[in-house]
């Protein structure tokens, strides 16, 4: 389903939040709610998103919503979607869970695996800002190699995050054989929103992993969120893909991968990198891209 920005609903279902300026998570949630509409029930863990939307007496969410615990989000959403059916809610309501990368691929993974195994009828969106941002930029299982965070500080004995590969939520969820899994980026709203729209029409457990840069945690000018998110995709450090019923494919292929150096140099979390370090990242990117070609069957 092609997304025409001119006709996308003007009505805001997320407004007046206290997110940081230029917040990618805010973009990701707003774009999703634009597609899903008012017939959405939203649940989030006690993450950035919850902390910036629903601090009493403020409630910046305009649909039914609740907060749950970090490891409990997916199961809470499961309980909610089961209850919606048991209590006879209209069929066109969407149960939406939104959590960050930490809340999803680290502390929330077990619960999400359970929800996926049961194929509970919900959409789960992971906004990935590549660290635990709400608690103050600590590393997560999605923090990229060499990135500075407050728990992977740089110094004579450290170059930042040590793991060369981030957990692949796309592949983890694909292995659960749920009906729909996708990756997306806030810099490609038509691609992302089309995926949300597609997910909305499917029953069962649907998971979308969306790249959402964080100016506060990454250290860049707040105006550059979309620019950076785009550079990540163009340089092959992130990818736009989907898995619909087992059919995996790339949904956007950069004509030619750009040099990651420009992307890295725009962010304070990578400012310590030498040319040698950047070369290592290029090599990791190249190997990962070759691997993705096999996983997603593209040339």
């Amino acid at each position: 389903m092609a997304i025409n920005l001119k006709t996308v609903d003007d009505k805001e279902l997320l407004y007046g939040t206290k997110i940081c300026q230029g917040c990618g998570a805010g973009m990701a949630a707003r774009m999703a709610l634009k597609v899903l509409g008012e017939k959405t029930v939203l649940c989030t863990p006690a993450c950035c998103f919850a902390a910036t939307t629903t601090v009493f007496p403020q409630s910046s969410i305009f649909v039914n919503n609740a907060i749950s615990a970090f490891p409990g989000l997916a199961a809470t959403a499961s309980g909610m979607t089961h209850a919606m059916k048991a209590l006879g809610w209209d069929d066109d309501y969407t149960m939406l869970a939104i959590a960050g990368d930490g809340g999803t691929i680290d502390i929330g993974l077990q619960g999400l695996s359970g929800a996926a195994e049961r194929n509970d009828d919900l959409i789960y969106i992971c906004y990935d800002n590549e660290a635990y941002m709400n608690t103050g930029v600590q590393r997560s299982g999605s923090t990229p190699f060499d990135a500075w965070t407050t728990t992977t500080p740089t110094g004579p004995c450290s170059k930042g995050e040590k793991n060369k590969f981030r957990k692949s939520l796309f592949e983890i969820m694909s292995a659960h054989r749920i009906p729909y899994v996708a990756t997306a980026s806030v810099a490609y709203p038509q691609d992302y929103m089309a995926k949300v729209a597609k997910a909305k029409e499917i029953k069962g457990c649907r998971v979308i992993h969306v790249s959402a840069p964080c100016p506060t945690g990454w250290g860049y000018d707040t105006a550059k969120t979309v620019e950076l998110a785009k550079m990540a995709v163009e340089s092959g450090l992130w990818y736009l893909a989907e898995n619909e019923g087992g059919e995996m494919k790339l949904t956007y292929k950069p004509k030619e991968l750009k040099d990651p150096a420009d992307y890295l140099k725009m962010q304070k979390r990578f400012k310590h990198l030498t040319e040698e370090d950047i070369q290592e990242i290029r090599e990791i990117r190249d190997a990962e891209w070759e691997r993705l070609k096999k996983v997603l069957s593209f040339e």
């Binding site: 003007d10 300026q21 707003r30």
Partner: peptide, 18 residues
């Protein structure tokens, strides 16, 4: 040119197109 990119990217949703 009314491309609406500013409108969709705005993290606050505070650009009005009505």
């Amino acid at each position: 040119v009314r491309c609406m990119f500013c409108w969709i990217y705005c993290p606050e949703g505070c650009i009005d197109k009505t």
